[in-house]
């Protein structure tokens, strides 16, 4: 229709350029407000990246404290991973929902309170349904509060993003943490005791008695704390050799 031509002819040059630019901004805003599919590529990326390239333990160097102490057997490691996934995901969700109403000065205190409440809940659930494991984990369930991964993701992601992506990011980072924990626990228990303890199934003897009769001995060193650190160092070595992009400059 001629309407468009009329507008173009009647406005001075500066105003016409402004109009074009505003139209572009209105389009961009509409793009941003368009609802993103729940499991779109961008959201799945949030789940996938922390598993390898952005792993909380080996790349971001967060959450190491509890990762090393609970990996003597496989069962506490699995329970700890599930607890951390739950706490990270839900605290990300809650803080993301509240992100526009928290005053900046008391930000850290609010985050700590949210995390502490979730951890108390997880601790009580563990004490009720998995008492033996919670005794093995002892203080490390409480130490999830100071687990750097959770605070780190809250500050870096949840404070600036919408609830659903924040939730996915929490689950992704929890999974990345869990994978490393399970690998370390698997190696430590297999070589340190020759067994694998799986929740709800119990202790499975992997190395058959025949090996022991031939003279094979369990590597007692693997059960001790320092080997966990060396195992993580080796995992980092393998991961960085396969992904050259992660290597630090001199």
């Amino acid at each position: 229709m001629c309407y468009g031509k009329q507008i173009r002819a009647s406005l001075p040059v500066g105003a016409r350029i402004e109009k074009e630019r505003n139209k572009k901004y209105i389009n961009m805003n509409q793009e941003a407000n368009k609802k993103e599919a729940l499991f779109s590529a961008k959201n799945m990326e949030l789940l996938r990246k922390p598993l390898n390239l952005d792993n909380p333990i080996t790349v971001q160097v967060l959450g190491i404290c509890s990762a090393l102490a609970v990996t003597v057997k496989l069962e506490p490691a699995i329970v700890m991973s599930i607890s951390v996934i739950v706490v990270t995901a839900f605290s990300n969700l809650i803080i993301s929902l509240l992100r526009n109403t928290i005053p900046s000065r008391i930000r850290i205190i609010v985050q700590l309170i949210v995390i502490a409440t979730l951890v108390i809940l997880v601790d009580q659930v563990l004490k009720a349904f998995a008492y033996d494991v919670s005794k093995q984990l002892s203080v490390f369930v409480g130490l999830i509060i100071t687990n750097c991964i959770i605070m780190g993701r809250l500050e870096a992601f949840a404070m600036a993003n919408k609830p659903w992506p924040a939730f996915m990011d929490g689950v992704g980072n929890g999974l990345g943490y869990g994978i490393i924990l399970i690998i370390i626990a698997f190696l430590r228990e297999l070589f340190g005791s020759g067994t694998l303890t799986i929740p709800m199934v119990g202790e499975l003897r992997i190395i058959p008695q025949a090996f022991y009769d031939m003279g094979y001995e369990n590597n007692g060193m693997m059960i001790l704390p320092p080997m966990a650190l060396i195992t993580v160092g080796l995992i980092i070595w393998i991961q960085r050799s396969r992904n050259r992009v992660l290597i630090e400059e001199k």
């Binding site: 060396i230 980092i236 070595w237 991961q239 960085r240 630090e248």
Partner: peptide, 11 residues
Amino acid sequence: APLRGIGITFI
């Protein structure tokens, strides 16, 4: 090179 930084620190 892959051990530089945190890898060697862990070990």
